[in-house]
Design a binder for these strands. Sequence first.
RNA 1: GGCGCCUUCGUCAAGUGGUUAAGACACCGCCCUCUCACGGCGGGUUCAAGGGUUCGAAUCCCUUAGGCGUCACCA
Length: 488
Amino acid sequence: MNKVRTRFAPSPTGYMHIGNLRTALYAYLFAKSQHGDFILRIEDTDRARYVPDAVEFIEKTLAAAKIIPDEGPHHGGNFGPYVQSERMEIYKAYAEKLVELGYAYRCFCNHDDDSNEGDEKKFGGYDRTCRHLEREEIEANLVARKPYVIRQKMPLTGETTFYDVLHGNITISNSELEDQILLKSDGMPTYNFANVIDDHLMGVTHIIRGTEFITSTPKHVLLYENFGWEIPTFIHLAPVMGKSDDGTISKLSKRHGATSFNDLVEMGYLPEVITNYVALLGWSPKTNQEIFSMDELIEKFSLDGLSKSPAVFDYNKLDWMSGEYFKAMSDEDFAQAAEKFFGTLNENLASKKIYLGSLLKPRISKLSDIHAQIKFLQERLPLDAELFTNKRNKVTAENSVGILTDAIKVLEKISDWTVDELHEKITAFVTESGLKMGTIMWALRIALSGQKVTPGGVIEILYLLGKKESLERLNAALKFLGDIAKKN
RNA sequence: GGCGCCUUCGUCAAGUGGUUAAGACACCGCCCUCUCACGGCGGGUUCAAGGGUUCGAAUCCCUUAGGCGUCACCA
């Protein structure tokens, strides 16, 4: 049996859409699960859409996602070049050969000219009458003088069937197929041609790509047949969809927010989380496992777990998965991954990064959430008397004054400002006061942070703030409450 | 419009003639708790519709509807 070879063949746009990433992932996983090769090939035959540095961008993105090509523009391999614009002579030769074989012909018409619109014999759709074969024989010297394209000569009757692993046999009537252009007038091949030539020449055994290519696959199959080449196995993947604010579902695009691998990384999702999540969008291991390392994905991947219906990208699930990864990380690793997202920390907090990270770790779904979580530690948020009122914990602005006053006295005496020590002293203080734990903690949290919700409890905040800042904040809160009382 | 593909909870999905139709996320409720979170427990909602075939259908067939794709010198 032939060694499995798959490929990822993006056109060089400076953007790695999640759907493309998933296609690359599946092609990679399948190849690796079969101990085969994964090829990166750049399809840059559209000169008008050329984006500088796009190849490097694609390679970097794949590397970040840990999808490593065995062959590619900068990965070596014996089937290069792996950039289509560098293979023009190859396509030209095969196109000419097809003309010789009688499966293609030169066309000298200028079909961009819309002046014939309305005339059903002309273009605007497909013009079956445009077959220059005979004319070409008469006017052989035209080839040297006029620009032309090479078109594939489609059978006018019958039908073409191909097998798709996901969809089974798909049959399309040949009358649906137009004499598509194989070689453009600028000498570049079209996707439909270059793709077939390269897949064959590079020994690709399994073509994994999006469903948008189903309809053009019969044309490819005909080409393989014309050349007498073995037809590869097709696997057409359903698209990744996005949900708009109004609830409508459509193919995932920029209007759905962050939809590229890089967008997601910038938001603070770990690359391995993105890969893990995306792997499950359209593929099921058929077990209840959801967290997979790349090695596990390779081990478990199987074509029959692929889904043939579209899958909606769900940020909720991504968030959950991201949180699971964070929780599984060591405090050190987390602090390191979060480094860029801490922003500029003051000296005190900078020295407590790992501890701070341990508090943040279980309560964020992406690294960019960190900023909002730690803002209150860096700056004093304006207090609001309302916040001191909490029915459940029996706290009011009035009784907070006494609590804060006593707490300050206790805290001032603490010299060993550690979590353990703070915990011990505060617990003792609560017991002594005869009040409920919740009452005291609530008042302190509001006074210290200015917000109801904080990463970690009062003890943790005190520790993070340090003695000086903590006491200053408590005193400021006391003054604030005093001013309020006077006003009333 | 022609042709093609798709259709199990809100979302990801298991399921391939006989199941109480898994599980996860989300949501709701309760418990725990110094807030949030974590954790624990519980809950609701699903086979697009209609016809067949069959003792029996989410599973097989047909029709309809809806969604998506495609009909380029773009990929």
